[in-house]
Each structure stands twice: as structure tokens, then as C-alpha cells.
Amino acid sequence: MITRRRVMICAMVALVAPAVTMAQHVRTDSADRAARGAAMPRSSAQLDSIRADSVLEARTTRLAVQLRCAVCQGISIQESPSSLAREMREVVKDQLRAGRSDAEVKAYFVSKYGEWILLAPTARGFNLVLYVLPALLLIGGLVGIAVVVRRWTSAPAP
């Protein structure tokens, strides 16, 4: 029974790992969208430019979901229907087109709006509390349950 239990627990823990990476995966439907919406390309140069466009769209979306709409409540500039959000998204795209890195674009918005503009605080310094506490609870709980289940199953049967 003990080995089976271990297998079960291992299986569950193993499930967490891909789940974490998948959570970091971002929606790239805007890239699909751009590709779908485009007319049939004729030359490889056109193909390249379409590919570049869709990469730019995907990068814009990936950044836009992380930036808070300044005039809304708690939603990103990707989701917000407000005009300012649309212009902020354009700023993201313009800066990416001009060759800035994702980090530089984020830094630009932080310099204008403060850290408030980031929908997920940077995992650095005190902010780590936000990320580590829930993980600690989960890991501690798993260990606790493993210990407790072992102790309770080894108690003499009634």
C-alpha cells in the first residue's frame, strides 16, 4: 500500500510541474488571427513581413495582458474596451517595432505610472512574499498530509 500511496502522491506532484509551465504560456491567438485575416501571400518577402507582423502582434498581446489599464479597474489594456487602453496598446506595439525589449517596454510604463501598472508584481524583494507564501502552504500541507496519512494508517486497526 505504501508504494501505491507514494505513486499516487508522486503522480499528483508530477502534475503540478507541467501545470506551472502551462500557466505561464500565453495566448497567441492574436498571431493566428493576423495570419488568418491576411490575404494569400505571393512572395517570400510578403510571407516574411506577415510573419514579422504576427510575431509583433503576439508580443504585443503578451505584454498587453500584463499591463493594467490606467482608467479602468483591475483589467489589462488587452481586455479593456477603453480608448486609453487602445492607445497604450499602440504604444506597446510602436516601442516593440522600434526594437525595444519586453523588459524595456515594461520599464517605460513603470517609469510613467509606477509599479501599479504591472498586473503581476515583479517577483523580487518583498514581493516574493506574494509568490512564496501560497507555495509554502501547499508544500507544507502536502508534507503534512503525507505524514499524517502514514501515522494514521499505521495506527492499530479498531
Partner: peptide, 11 residues
């Protein structure tokens, strides 16, 4: 195009 507004971090 609100570029100045965004530059000034307008809420």
C-alpha cells in the same frame, strides 16, 4: 493619439 497623456502617466 494620447501619446503625451501616456508619457505623463495620465489616469
Amino acid at each position: 493619439r494620447s501619446r503625451m497623456a501616456i508619457d505623463y502617466g495620465l489616469y
